Amino acid sequence: MIKTIRNILFVSALSPLLIQCASQDEVRRLQYQLHTVNKKFEDMRTNTVDDMQKRQAAYSNQIDQLEMEILGLKSQLEETSHLNRSLKEQNKELQSNISDVAREDALHREQMIQRINEEQKAKEALIAQLNDKLQIQQENLKAIQDARVRDAERRAREAKMKADAAKARATAASRTDSRGIQKISAGLNKHVVGDQRPAAPKPSVKPATPTAKPSTPATQPATQTAATTSSPLGAAQALFDQEKYQEAYSAYNRITGANPASEEGITAAYMMGECLFAQKEYDRAILQYQKIISQSGSHPKAASATLKQAMAFELLADNETARLIYAKIVKHYSNSPEAKIARDKLK
Protein backbone atom coordinates (compact mmCIF):
# COMPACT_ATOMS: atom_id res chain seq x y z
CA MET A 1 0.00 0.00 0.00
CA ILE A 2 2.87 2.41 0.77
CA LYS A 3 4.54 1.57 -2.51
CA THR A 4 1.38 2.36 -4.40
CA ILE A 5 1.14 5.74 -2.72
CA ARG A 6 4.76 6.39 -3.47
CA ASN A 7 4.34 5.51 -7.16
CA ILE A 8 1.31 7.75 -7.38
CA LEU A 9 3.20 10.60 -5.88
CA PHE A 10 6.13 9.90 -8.14
CA VAL A 11 3.98 9.91 -11.24
CA SER A 12 2.25 13.03 -10.05
CA ALA A 13 5.61 14.71 -9.60
CA LEU A 14 6.89 13.59 -13.02
CA SER A 15 3.80 14.49 -14.93
CA PRO A 16 4.55 18.21 -15.05
CA LEU A 17 8.02 17.44 -16.27
CA LEU A 18 6.78 15.26 -19.00
CA ILE A 19 4.20 17.79 -20.00
CA GLN A 20 6.38 20.88 -19.84
CA CYS A 21 9.68 19.17 -20.63
CA ALA A 22 11.17 20.17 -17.37
CA SER A 23 14.88 20.75 -17.05
CA GLN A 24 17.44 18.53 -15.42
CA ASP A 25 17.59 20.68 -12.33
CA GLU A 26 13.95 20.40 -11.80
CA VAL A 27 14.25 16.69 -12.24
CA ARG A 28 16.89 16.53 -9.59
CA ARG A 29 14.87 18.76 -7.35
CA LEU A 30 11.93 16.50 -7.84
CA GLN A 31 14.05 13.48 -7.12
CA TYR A 32 15.27 15.13 -3.98
CA GLN A 33 11.74 15.90 -2.95
CA LEU A 34 10.75 12.37 -3.80
CA HIS A 35 13.63 11.07 -1.73
CA THR A 36 12.59 13.32 1.12
CA VAL A 37 9.06 12.09 0.84
CA ASN A 38 10.24 8.50 0.79
CA LYS A 39 12.36 9.13 3.80
CA LYS A 40 9.45 10.66 5.59
CA PHE A 41 7.39 7.67 4.61
CA GLU A 42 10.12 5.38 5.88
CA ASP A 43 10.37 7.34 9.10
CA MET A 44 6.63 7.37 9.45
CA ARG A 45 6.51 3.66 8.80
CA THR A 46 9.29 2.98 11.23
CA ASN A 47 7.79 5.18 13.93
CA THR A 48 4.29 3.89 13.34
CA VAL A 49 5.37 0.27 13.34
CA ASP A 50 7.48 0.76 16.44
CA ASP A 51 4.64 2.54 18.17
CA MET A 52 2.28 -0.14 17.09
CA GLN A 53 4.68 -2.84 18.23
CA LYS A 54 5.21 -1.08 21.52
CA ARG A 55 1.53 -0.64 21.89
CA GLN A 56 1.00 -4.24 20.90
CA ALA A 57 3.62 -5.29 23.43
CA ALA A 58 1.98 -3.10 26.04
CA TYR A 59 -1.38 -4.53 25.10
CA SER A 60 0.09 -8.00 25.30
CA ASN A 61 1.45 -7.24 28.77
CA GLN A 62 -1.89 -5.84 29.77
CA ILE A 63 -3.62 -8.86 28.31
CA ASP A 64 -1.21 -11.13 30.19
CA GLN A 65 -1.87 -9.21 33.37
CA LEU A 66 -5.59 -9.39 32.71
CA GLU A 67 -5.29 -13.11 32.08
CA MET A 68 -3.34 -13.49 35.32
CA GLU A 69 -5.91 -11.42 37.15
CA ILE A 70 -8.67 -13.46 35.55
CA LEU A 71 -6.90 -16.63 36.66
CA GLY A 72 -6.57 -15.16 40.15
CA LEU A 73 -10.23 -14.22 40.16
CA LYS A 74 -11.13 -17.70 38.95
CA SER A 75 -9.00 -19.16 41.73
CA GLN A 76 -10.67 -16.89 44.26
CA LEU A 77 -14.05 -17.79 42.83
CA GLU A 78 -13.22 -21.45 43.16
CA GLU A 79 -12.02 -20.92 46.74
CA THR A 80 -15.15 -18.90 47.49
CA SER A 81 -17.29 -21.58 45.96
CA HIS A 82 -15.44 -24.20 48.00
CA LEU A 83 -15.91 -22.12 51.13
CA ASN A 84 -19.58 -21.68 50.31
CA ARG A 85 -19.97 -25.41 49.92
CA SER A 86 -18.11 -25.98 53.19
CA LEU A 87 -20.25 -23.37 54.93
CA LYS A 88 -23.41 -24.95 53.54
CA GLU A 89 -22.28 -28.35 54.76
CA GLN A 90 -21.37 -26.89 58.16
CA ASN A 91 -24.70 -25.06 58.24
CA LYS A 92 -26.54 -28.29 57.49
CA GLU A 93 -24.53 -30.10 60.17
CA LEU A 94 -25.13 -27.26 62.63
CA GLN A 95 -28.85 -27.27 61.88
CA SER A 96 -28.86 -31.02 62.36
CA ASN A 97 -27.01 -30.64 65.67
CA ILE A 98 -29.34 -27.85 66.75
CA SER A 99 -32.32 -30.00 65.89
CA ASP A 100 -30.85 -32.90 67.84
CA VAL A 101 -30.09 -30.67 70.80
CA ALA A 102 -33.55 -29.13 70.62
CA ARG A 103 -35.15 -32.56 70.51
CA GLU A 104 -33.00 -33.78 73.41
CA ASP A 105 -33.76 -30.61 75.36
CA ALA A 106 -37.47 -30.94 74.68
CA LEU A 107 -37.36 -34.60 75.69
CA HIS A 108 -35.38 -33.77 78.83
CA ARG A 109 -37.80 -30.95 79.62
CA GLU A 110 -40.78 -33.24 79.16
CA GLN A 111 -39.14 -35.85 81.40
CA MET A 112 -38.42 -33.20 84.03
CA ILE A 113 -42.01 -31.92 83.86
CA GLN A 114 -43.32 -35.47 84.08
CA ARG A 115 -41.06 -36.25 87.05
CA ILE A 116 -42.06 -32.98 88.77
CA ASN A 117 -45.73 -33.78 88.17
CA GLU A 118 -45.23 -37.26 89.59
CA GLU A 119 -43.39 -35.86 92.60
CA GLN A 120 -46.11 -33.25 93.03
CA LYS A 121 -48.77 -35.93 92.90
CA ALA A 122 -46.81 -38.06 95.39
CA LYS A 123 -46.43 -35.06 97.68
CA GLU A 124 -50.12 -34.23 97.37
CA ALA A 125 -50.96 -37.85 98.17
CA LEU A 126 -48.58 -37.75 101.14
CA ILE A 127 -50.08 -34.45 102.29
CA ALA A 128 -53.55 -35.95 101.97
CA GLN A 129 -52.42 -38.95 104.03
CA LEU A 130 -50.86 -36.66 106.61
CA ASN A 131 -54.00 -34.54 106.69
CA ASP A 132 -56.06 -37.66 107.21
CA LYS A 133 -53.72 -38.80 109.97
CA LEU A 134 -53.75 -35.34 111.48
CA GLN A 135 -57.52 -35.25 111.37
CA ILE A 136 -57.68 -38.68 112.97
CA GLN A 137 -55.19 -37.58 115.63
CA GLN A 138 -57.16 -34.40 116.22
CA GLU A 139 -60.34 -36.41 116.52
CA ASN A 140 -58.61 -38.85 118.87
CA LEU A 141 -57.15 -35.98 120.87
CA LYS A 142 -60.54 -34.30 121.02
CA ALA A 143 -62.12 -37.57 122.09
CA ILE A 144 -59.41 -38.02 124.73
CA GLN A 145 -59.83 -34.44 125.88
CA ASP A 146 -63.60 -34.82 125.98
CA ALA A 147 -63.22 -38.05 127.92
CA ARG A 148 -60.80 -36.42 130.31
CA VAL A 149 -63.06 -33.40 130.68
CA ARG A 150 -65.98 -35.67 131.41
CA ASP A 151 -63.85 -37.64 133.87
CA ALA A 152 -62.67 -34.41 135.47
CA GLU A 153 -66.25 -33.18 135.68
CA ARG A 154 -67.24 -36.47 137.22
CA ARG A 155 -64.41 -36.20 139.74
CA ALA A 156 -65.41 -32.59 140.38
CA ARG A 157 -69.00 -33.64 141.00
CA GLU A 158 -67.83 -36.41 143.30
CA ALA A 159 -65.55 -33.98 145.10
CA LYS A 160 -68.40 -31.50 145.38
CA MET A 161 -70.66 -34.19 146.76
CA LYS A 162 -67.98 -35.18 149.26
CA ALA A 163 -67.42 -31.53 150.13
CA ASP A 164 -71.16 -31.01 150.60
CA ALA A 165 -71.34 -34.12 152.75
CA ALA A 166 -68.36 -32.97 154.81
CA LYS A 167 -69.93 -29.55 155.12
CA ALA A 168 -73.16 -31.11 156.27
CA ARG A 169 -71.32 -33.20 158.80
CA ALA A 170 -69.40 -30.16 160.00
CA THR A 171 -72.65 -28.19 160.28
CA ALA A 172 -74.27 -30.98 162.21
CA ALA A 173 -71.23 -31.28 164.46
CA SER A 174 -71.13 -27.54 165.07
CA ARG A 175 -74.61 -27.51 166.59
CA THR A 176 -75.01 -28.50 170.29
CA ASP A 177 -77.74 -31.02 170.56
CA SER A 178 -79.66 -32.20 173.50
CA ARG A 179 -76.94 -34.66 174.44
CA GLY A 180 -74.51 -31.83 175.16
CA ILE A 181 -71.98 -32.19 172.26
CA GLN A 182 -69.72 -29.17 172.12
CA LYS A 183 -68.69 -27.28 168.95
CA ILE A 184 -65.45 -28.55 167.37
CA SER A 185 -62.94 -25.91 166.41
CA ALA A 186 -59.31 -25.85 165.26
CA GLY A 187 -56.76 -26.52 167.96
CA LEU A 188 -59.27 -28.08 170.39
CA ASN A 189 -59.89 -31.69 171.26
CA LYS A 190 -63.33 -33.19 171.14
CA HIS A 191 -65.05 -33.53 174.58
CA VAL A 192 -68.31 -35.35 175.17
CA VAL A 193 -70.29 -33.88 178.07
CA GLY A 194 -73.27 -36.12 178.35
CA ASP A 195 -73.40 -39.89 178.58
CA GLN A 196 -69.70 -40.37 179.16
CA ARG A 197 -68.17 -43.18 181.06
CA PRO A 198 -66.23 -42.65 184.32
CA ALA A 199 -62.73 -41.60 183.71
CA ALA A 200 -60.02 -44.00 184.59
CA PRO A 201 -58.01 -43.16 187.67
CA LYS A 202 -54.91 -41.16 186.88
CA PRO A 203 -51.57 -42.68 187.85
CA SER A 204 -49.64 -41.10 190.60
CA VAL A 205 -46.66 -40.52 188.37
CA LYS A 206 -46.75 -37.05 186.85
CA PRO A 207 -46.78 -37.23 183.07
CA ALA A 208 -44.06 -35.64 181.02
CA THR A 209 -44.56 -32.10 179.90
CA PRO A 210 -45.97 -32.12 176.37
CA THR A 211 -44.13 -30.31 173.63
CA ALA A 212 -45.47 -27.10 172.18
CA LYS A 213 -47.31 -28.83 169.37
CA PRO A 214 -50.58 -26.91 169.37
CA SER A 215 -48.79 -23.87 168.02
CA THR A 216 -48.86 -25.28 164.50
CA PRO A 217 -52.62 -25.56 164.13
CA ALA A 218 -52.99 -22.22 165.81
CA THR A 219 -50.62 -20.61 163.32
CA GLN A 220 -52.29 -21.93 160.16
CA PRO A 221 -55.70 -20.44 160.85
CA ALA A 222 -54.08 -17.14 161.70
CA THR A 223 -52.20 -17.06 158.41
CA GLN A 224 -55.25 -18.11 156.45
CA THR A 225 -57.36 -15.49 158.15
CA ALA A 226 -54.83 -12.76 157.36
CA ALA A 227 -54.67 -13.79 153.69
CA THR A 228 -58.46 -13.93 153.46
CA THR A 229 -58.78 -10.51 154.97
CA SER A 230 -56.26 -8.93 152.56
CA SER A 231 -57.94 -9.79 149.22
CA PRO A 232 -59.78 -12.62 147.45
CA LEU A 233 -56.77 -13.16 145.20
CA GLY A 234 -54.48 -13.40 148.21
CA ALA A 235 -56.83 -15.87 149.86
CA ALA A 236 -56.87 -18.02 146.74
CA GLN A 237 -53.07 -17.81 146.55
CA ALA A 238 -52.82 -18.94 150.17
CA LEU A 239 -54.93 -21.98 149.34
CA PHE A 240 -52.72 -22.69 146.35
CA ASP A 241 -49.56 -22.40 148.47
CA GLN A 242 -51.09 -24.89 150.92
CA GLU A 243 -51.62 -27.28 147.93
CA LYS A 244 -55.38 -27.08 148.35
CA TYR A 245 -55.76 -26.93 144.62
CA GLN A 246 -59.47 -27.68 144.32
CA GLU A 247 -60.37 -25.01 146.85
CA ALA A 248 -57.95 -22.59 145.23
CA TYR A 249 -59.47 -23.37 141.82
CA SER A 250 -62.94 -22.52 143.12
CA ALA A 251 -61.65 -19.29 144.68
CA TYR A 252 -59.92 -18.22 141.47
CA ASN A 253 -63.04 -19.12 139.50
CA ARG A 254 -65.11 -16.76 141.64
CA ILE A 255 -62.63 -13.96 140.97
CA THR A 256 -62.73 -14.47 137.19
CA GLY A 257 -66.50 -14.61 137.27
CA ALA A 258 -66.67 -11.23 138.99
CA ASN A 259 -64.43 -9.34 136.53
CA PRO A 260 -62.70 -11.54 133.91
CA ALA A 261 -61.11 -8.66 131.94
CA SER A 262 -59.36 -7.07 134.94
CA GLU A 263 -55.79 -7.70 135.99
CA GLU A 264 -56.95 -9.85 138.89
CA GLY A 265 -59.36 -11.73 136.63
CA ILE A 266 -56.61 -12.60 134.12
CA THR A 267 -54.25 -13.63 136.92
CA ALA A 268 -56.98 -15.75 138.51
CA ALA A 269 -57.73 -17.41 135.13
CA TYR A 270 -54.04 -18.24 134.75
CA MET A 271 -53.88 -19.64 138.29
CA MET A 272 -56.91 -21.82 137.53
CA GLY A 273 -54.75 -23.46 134.86
CA GLU A 274 -51.93 -23.77 137.41
CA CYS A 275 -54.30 -25.55 139.81
CA LEU A 276 -55.26 -28.02 137.11
CA PHE A 277 -51.62 -28.44 136.08
CA ALA A 278 -50.60 -29.14 139.67
CA GLN A 279 -53.31 -31.83 139.89
CA LYS A 280 -51.91 -33.37 136.66
CA GLU A 281 -55.13 -32.63 134.79
CA TYR A 282 -53.11 -31.51 131.81
CA ASP A 283 -55.89 -31.65 129.23
CA ARG A 284 -58.11 -29.32 131.25
CA ALA A 285 -55.11 -27.12 132.00
CA ILE A 286 -54.42 -26.81 128.25
CA LEU A 287 -57.99 -25.64 127.66
CA GLN A 288 -57.77 -23.16 130.54
CA TYR A 289 -54.46 -21.74 129.27
CA GLN A 290 -56.00 -21.43 125.80
CA LYS A 291 -58.70 -19.13 127.18
CA ILE A 292 -55.99 -16.69 128.34
CA ILE A 293 -54.12 -16.91 125.01
CA SER A 294 -57.32 -16.30 123.02
CA GLN A 295 -58.86 -13.58 125.19
CA SER A 296 -55.73 -11.78 126.47
CA GLY A 297 -53.01 -12.46 123.91
CA SER A 298 -51.15 -9.21 124.63
CA HIS A 299 -51.06 -9.74 128.39
CA PRO A 300 -47.74 -10.86 129.96
CA LYS A 301 -49.54 -13.93 131.32
CA ALA A 302 -50.19 -15.09 127.74
CA ALA A 303 -46.53 -16.03 127.29
CA SER A 304 -46.53 -18.00 130.56
CA ALA A 305 -49.82 -19.65 129.61
CA THR A 306 -48.40 -20.67 126.21
CA LEU A 307 -45.28 -22.10 127.86
CA LYS A 308 -47.29 -24.10 130.39
CA GLN A 309 -49.55 -25.30 127.59
CA ALA A 310 -46.52 -26.65 125.70
CA MET A 311 -45.23 -28.30 128.88
CA ALA A 312 -48.65 -29.91 129.38
CA PHE A 313 -48.58 -31.33 125.85
CA GLU A 314 -45.06 -32.62 126.50
CA LEU A 315 -46.25 -34.35 129.67
CA LEU A 316 -49.10 -35.87 127.63
CA ALA A 317 -46.39 -37.36 125.31
CA ASP A 318 -47.50 -35.13 122.40
CA ASN A 319 -43.98 -33.93 121.67
CA GLU A 320 -44.74 -32.67 118.16
CA THR A 321 -47.44 -30.28 119.37
CA ALA A 322 -45.20 -29.22 122.23
CA ARG A 323 -42.38 -28.50 119.80
CA LEU A 324 -44.67 -26.36 117.62
CA ILE A 325 -45.82 -24.35 120.65
CA TYR A 326 -42.23 -23.88 121.87
CA ALA A 327 -41.34 -22.56 118.40
CA LYS A 328 -44.35 -20.23 118.55
CA ILE A 329 -43.12 -18.85 121.89
CA VAL A 330 -39.66 -18.18 120.44
CA LYS A 331 -41.23 -16.39 117.47
CA HIS A 332 -43.90 -14.29 119.20
CA TYR A 333 -42.29 -13.73 122.62
CA SER A 334 -38.62 -13.65 121.61
CA ASN A 335 -37.47 -11.29 124.38
CA SER A 336 -39.37 -12.92 127.23
CA PRO A 337 -37.99 -15.34 129.85
CA GLU A 338 -40.42 -17.92 128.51
CA ALA A 339 -38.69 -17.74 125.11
CA LYS A 340 -35.36 -18.67 126.75
CA ILE A 341 -36.99 -21.69 128.37
CA ALA A 342 -38.59 -22.61 125.05
CA ARG A 343 -35.22 -22.43 123.28
CA ASP A 344 -33.70 -24.73 125.88
CA LYS A 345 -36.63 -27.12 125.42
CA LEU A 346 -36.21 -27.12 121.65
CA LYS A 347 -32.52 -28.02 122.02
Rank of each mutant, 00 (worst) to 15 (best):
K3I: 04
T4S: 12
I5E: 14
R6P: 01
N7A: 12
I8A: 04
V11I: 13
S12D: 11
Q20P: 01
Q24H: 10
E26D: 12
Q31T: 13
L34W: 06
H35E: 12
K39C: 01
R45Y: 14
N47Q: 02
Q53P: 04
K54L: 14
D64W: 00
I70D: 09
T80F: 14
T80Q: 09
L87R: 03
K88G: 06
Q90M: 08
Q111L: 09
R115H: 03
E119D: 02
L126G: 08
L126F: 00
Q129V: 05
L134D: 10
Q135K: 15
I136D: 08
Q138I: 15
A143E: 14
V149Q: 08
R150D: 11
E153K: 12
A156S: 11
E158I: 07
E158R: 06
A159S: 15
K162D: 03
A165Y: 05
R169T: 13
S178E: 08
Q182F: 08
A186E: 09
N189H: 13
H191E: 15
D195T: 14
R197P: 00
P198F: 11
A199Q: 12
A200N: 09
P201E: 12
V205C: 08
K206N: 10
P207S: 07
P207V: 02
S215V: 13
Q220P: 04
A222C: 08
A222F: 08
Q224Y: 06
Q224S: 14
T225N: 10
A226K: 15
T228F: 12
T229S: 15
S230M: 15
S231H: 11
L233R: 04
L239T: 00
D241Y: 07
D241M: 03
K244S: 10
K244T: 14
Y245V: 01
Q246P: 09
Q246A: 05
E247W: 09
A248Y: 00
S250Y: 08
Y252F: 05
I255H: 04
T256G: 03
A261G: 10
S262T: 02
G265I: 01
G265K: 04
L276C: 09
K280H: 11
K280L: 01
I293F: 00
S298E: 14
P300S: 14
L307V: 00
Q309H: 01
Q309A: 09
M311A: 12
A327E: 14
K328C: 00
Y333W: 06
S334Y: 01
S336I: 09
I341P: 01
K347P: 00
